[in-house]
Nucleic acid binder design. Structure first.
Length: 285
RNA sequence: GUGUUUUAUU
């Protein structure tokens, strides 16, 4: 099963749902038995591939009946994967129903469950609902962790509540939760959208100083922010700094650069950069 | 030995 599971997982990663499922169908004939990993990879892959119906079908097959194949942890992981898949597809109500179902069967939601739900609420703009759950989760035995804070900060930022996002940034520190690279990247991105670019630069320096290395997310947020504000020269300075520090750009970074060049009426240069991007083997999206 | 959650561009 291990080998076949790895194949399923690999095919799913590359978006080959059908092919992955074909491997699954070969498990029994091969004299093996699908295990919880098999179903996790299949359910997760189908969800990511937008094949929710297939994911639901498998989920029901393996957890819908009376039979009990897997240990509690495996079942919680499968529930969490399905909750996340539904939530990411914008089906928050269905995801919440599934959380109720797991509760009813005696499986307490864990950090993954809460964090997935919070993320999907943020994604559909249900900030109030997210905050309610955020504030009550500690009573349910799940104190917010770094992922929770980062997710809710991002959710507030997307809702245009930059002030509240920074209040939560303070809040997490008073609760003894150390901000990490993702926290800073999230905040820098928010500041890039509100146009508070000098504050963004302050945070960029600060994160470095306390040992959080800026990465491609940091630089792409900064470059995009400066381009948005038509401060192309500063975007360029940051781009040079990025490469000097050995941080490789990716397609999103190229998109920001192209955007900045076009905004700066340097369409010819944008064309040249695009050619260079292709030459370097980057795939435009 | 394969395990589910958070951040960037348009």
């Amino acid at each position: 099963v291990y080998v076949l599971n790895r194949q399923i997982s690999g095919l799913m990663e590359s978006g080959y749902c059908e092919e992955a499922f074909a491997i699954y169908e070969k498990i029994l004939p091969a004299g093996c038995k699908p295990d919880s990993y098999t179903y996790l990879h299949l359910i997760k892959g189908f969800c990511e591939g937008g094949e929710l119906a297939e994911a639901r079908k498998l989920f029901k097959k393996v957890l819908g009946g009376e039979e009990d194949h897997f240990c509690g942890l495996s079942k919680v992981i499968l529930y969490n994967a399905m909750v996340h898949g539904l939530g990411s597809a914008g089906l928050v109500e269905e995801a919440l129903d599934l959380v109720e179902e797991m509760r009813g069967r005696g499986f307490a939601p864990d950090m993954y469950t809460y964090n997935s739900i919070l993320h999907s609420l943020g994604k559909v703009g249900k900030v109030t609902e997210a905050l309610t759950i955020f504030e009550s989760m500690a009573d349910q035995g799940c104190s917010p962790d770094i992922v929770t804070y980062n997710s809710v900060i991002s959710c507030l930022g997307k809702a245009g509540k930059a002030k509240e996002a920074f209040e939560l940034f303070e809040g997490m520190r008073t609760e003894g939760c150390q901000p990490d690279q993702v926290t800073f990247n999230t905040l820098i991105s928010i500041l890039g959208k509100t146009g508070e670019l000098d504050l963004a630069l302050n945070l960029y320096e600060f994160m470095t100083r306390i040992g959080c290395e800026p990465d491609v997310y940091t630089y792409t947020s900064l470059v995009a922010g400066f381009c948005r504000a038509n401060r192309i020269d500063e975007a360029l300075v940051l781009s040079v700094e990025m490469t000097e520090k050995g941080c490789a750009p990716n397609t999103a970074t190229f998109n920001s650069w192209l955007d900045g060049l076009c905004k700066g009426d340097k369409v010819v240069e944008a064309g040249l950069l695009f050619d260079k991007m292709l030459l370097l083997g980057y795939v435009p999206d």
